[in-house]
C-alpha cells in the first residue's frame, strides 16, 4: 500500500513543498539535498549548493557548535538537536523580508540525524524549523497548563495556596535551605477565638473573616520566594527564606498589626473585642531532620498561652550551636 502511495509523488516535489528546511550531506559534509525552503531563506539556490562543502556554501560563517554537532552525528551516528535557547541562529538563514525593514536572522531549531544513502554511505539529514512559531505555541500550551495547575494548588475559599501546595513547597524550601545553608522561617498563624466568632456571627460571616485575613496577610508579602497557604480551618502558614530571626520577628509584628488594624468587631473575644491573630515563628538553617513546622507550632501554642494577639519566635536549637562554632 504505502509503496504505491509514495510512487504517486515525486519525492523532490514533496521535499520542496514541505514547510521545513532539509539539507542532506555526505560523510565529508558535501551537500546532497537542498530543498526550496532552505533556498528561500538562505538566498542560495540549490544549484549553487549541491556538491559544495556545507561550511563553504554560506557567505557568512556557520556556528562552530553546528559544525561540531554535524561532525558528531557523522562519526558517532547518533542524532543531535540544537535548541533555539542555546544557539538562536546557527545557520545564516533569514526571515522573509518586510517592506522598508532590514532582513532579520531566523531563530532556528535544528535536528541532525544519521541516514544512509542507497549506496549505504553514512550521511546526515539536517532538519531546520523556524522556531518563532513554536515559541508562540509553547506559550499558549504553557498558560493552559498553568490554569490547570492553579486549580489543583489553590484554596477555593481564600484563593491563596492550599495545603497540598504548601506540603510540596515546604519540602522543597527546606531542601533548598539545607543545601544552600540559608535561613528559612515558618510562620504558623491562627485567628484567635474563631470558634466563638462562628458561634456568634454564623459560618458565612466566619468564611468572610477567613477571606479577609488571608487577603490582608497576603498583601504583606512582596517577594516571589514567599508563600502563604491556608493550613486548615482558620490556620495559615507562611514560608519565607533568607530572613534572620530579628527580621522575621519584625515581619510577624507587621502581620499582627495589619490584621489588628482591620478592626473587625468580635464581641466574644474577651480581651480585644475584635479579630486578632496569634503567630508562632521558627527561623533557622535546617539540618538533618530539623522540623521547623513543629517548632513553629510550639511557638504558636506559646503565643496562645501568653494571651494571644502576639507572636512568639523560636530558633532551631541546633542552629544556635552551629552559628557559635
Amino acid at each position: 500500500m504505502s509503496k504505491i502511495d509514495t510512487k504517486h509523488f515525486d519525492m523532490d516535489n514533496i521535499f520542496n513543498t514541505i514547510n521545513l528546511g532539509l539539507i542532506a550531506v555526505d560523510a565529508e559534509g558535501k551537500v546532497l539535498l537542498w530543498n526550496d525552503w532552505i533556498a528561500k531563506h538562505s538566498n542560495i539556490q540549490e544549484a549553487d549548493a549541491l556538491n559544495q562543502s556545507l561550511e563553504n556554501v554560506f557567505a557568512e560563517t556557520v556556528s562552530p557548535a553546528f559544525l561540531t554537532a554535524l561532525n558528531s552525528t557523522l562519526t558517532h551516528r547518533l542524532p543531535v538537536v540544537l535548541s533555539t535557547a542555546l544557539h538562536r541562529s546557527p545557520l545564516p538563514l533569514y526571515n522573509p523580508p518586510k517592506i522598508n525593514q532590514p532582513q532579520t536572522r531566523m531563530y532556528q531549531s535544528i535536528a541532525i540525524t544519521p541516514i544512509r544513502s542507497q549506496q549505504n554511505e553514512s550521511c546526515g539529514l539536517i532538519q531546520i524549523t523556524d522556531s518563532s512559531s513554536s515559541i508562540k505555541r509553547e506559550k499558549i500550551l504553557r498558560s493552559h497548563s498553568e490554569i490547570l495547575k492553579k486549580e489543583a494548588t489553590t484554596d477555593g475559599l481564600t484563593d491563596i495556596c492550599n495545603r497540598r501546595f504548601f506540603d510540596a513547597h515546604y519540602e522543597m524550601a527546606v531542601a533548598d535551605a539545607k543545601r544552600q545553608k540559608h535561613y528559612l522561617s515558618i510562620f504558623m498563624i491562627d485567628i484567635d477565638f474563631f470558634k466563638l466568632y462562628n458561634d456568634q456571627y454564623g459560618h458565612l460571616a466566619g468564611d468572610e473573616v477567613i477571606k479577609q485575613v488571608a487577603r490582608t496577610l497576603k498583601a504583606q508579602l512582596s517577594r516571589a520566594t514567599d508563600i502563604i497557604a491556608r493550613y486548615g480551618g482558620e490556620e495559615f502558614v507562611l514560608v519565607m527564606p533568607y530572613l534572620p530571626k530579628k527580621t522575621a520577628e519584625q515581619f510577624a509584628e507587621k502581620l499582627r498589626s495589619a490584621v489588628f488594624n482591620l478592626a473587625i468587631p468580635h464581641i466574644k473575644s474577651p480581651l480585644f473585642k475584635q479579630i486578632t491573630i496569634s503567630i508562632g515563628i521558627c527561623t533557622g538553617i535546617p539540618e538533618n531532620d530539623d522540623n521547623l513546622l513543629n517548632t513553629a507550632d510550639t511557638a504558636l501554642y506559646q503565643a496562645k498561652q501568653k494571651g494571644r494577639n502576639q507572636f512568639i519566635s523560636l530558633a532551631l536549637c541546633e542552629i544556635e550551636e552551629y552559628l557559635e562554632q
Partner: peptide, 10 residues
C-alpha cells in the same frame, strides 16, 4: 520556560 522543552532535549 518557553525554551525549556527544546533546551532540555539538547
Amino acid at each position: 520556560a518557553e525554551f525549556e522543552h527544546e533546551a532540555m532535549c539538547e
